[in-house]
Nucleic acid binder design. Sequence first.
DNA 1: AAATATATATCGCTA
DNA 2: TAGCGATGTATATTT
Lengths: 233, 233
Amino acid sequence: MSDAAFLADPSPAEAADALRDADDRAVALYGACELAYDGRATSTLPVGRRHVLHKPDGTLLAHAATGHQPVNWLAPGATLSVSVEDDELRLHGERDGETLDCRFTHVSHVSLLPLDDADAEVSGTEDDLRERVLADPDLISEGFRPLATERDTAAGPVDIYGEDADGTRVVVELKRRRVGPDAASQLDRYVDALARDLHADAAVRGVLVAPSVTDRARHLLAEAGHDFVPLTP
Amino acid sequence: MSDAAFLADPSPAEAADALRDADDRAVALYGACELAYDGRATSTLPVGRRHVLHKPDGTLLAHAATGHQPVNWLAPGATLSVSVEDDELRLHGERDGETLDCRFTHVSHVSLLPLDDADAEVSGTEDDLRERVLADPDLISEGFRPLATERDTAAGPVDIYGEDADGTRVVVELKRRRVGPDAASQLDRYVDALARDLHADAAVRGVLVAPSVTDRARHLLAEAGHDFVPLTP
DNA sequence: AAATATATATCGCTA
DNA sequence: TAGCGATGTATATTT
């Protein structure tokens, strides 16, 4: 792969050439530009100083002064067109009917950056929580026996499906974070679906496993007769 | 605000000084670094070439070759500590019990970038959809009369609350995108809650407004007796 | 390609 | 501050 390269105060044509010669390098642009997105919604931004990053996978990110999120972007897979019109650098990204246009009134800096890809090994996810429950099923309730993970139902796959000490079928829904009403509804859908899958009169117990639960979710769980088991990943 | 500044091949100490002198400017670093995140989860990445952006609001973003999402990050509000140890630049970000450490084995480039903030005017949102329905309530059903928006219930605020041509109470839930089972459950919660708020025997009709629905969601709606109105923002 | 659920989601609003 | 829902959510997995 080519080396990193940096251009200070390039002309629009030089900036355009840099973008075209990027190969597998990411391109970071700094300058003043106007942004216009159209696709899932429509958004325009007046000229302002931004940091624009184009990755070799087509990702296009325009960052303003604040926030984790780019102020405008295109997801991976976009194709970029570069041109110079009226002595201005213009980027036109397109992907799946979405477009993002950047009109640079001034380009202050262009960097060509070889970046390494890397999958971060993340732990503390819902998968880890599941491993923990499977390793010690008594965490759910004394004598709980897991029978399957990702068991399919009409409502979708259930995190853990198993049996109580007294033979009652149990649906376990795992959440790594404090849960709200959505998780209670989700568990409810699974329990309903499983009860039908089995038999009209089959008793199915629902268990929500999470670090904690909001009041409203606790209420929903109680109403539906489901249990909550506090457990932190 | 200070001007933009660019440093090529800075020493670790020079890079650290640049970060400390950033004032209200964002700092973009390019080089090889090892990343370690700990907080809501745990993640480590071996040394690799990355693009790291630190914004004046504390946001810290580390980008690898692919993807919209940073490979590691801290949300706005983080505080950054900069140091040089073993002749290496080290960043330590901290926020609300979360930490992100960047150990640079080599810094190739540092930029100090004044960025403008900007709120993008976005159209095509759920708010726009609501305006459209309020302007032409017949879109819901012939003779529908909106009575309130964001009407509070025990389950949360309802998008639009109103009355049918025949006086039946109606709960309208708006979605700007194709909806799945979650939206059907949400509408169901609202309808249940409103029926209780009013009277035990009050009939409440649920209407989901969205461009389209998935099969499973359609089933859930049908089971609960709710209606679907196709409408694209 | 479509559907479904997760995420270190982030962001904005409201009580 | 916590809860709650929207987001141009992105991303992974499975069908």
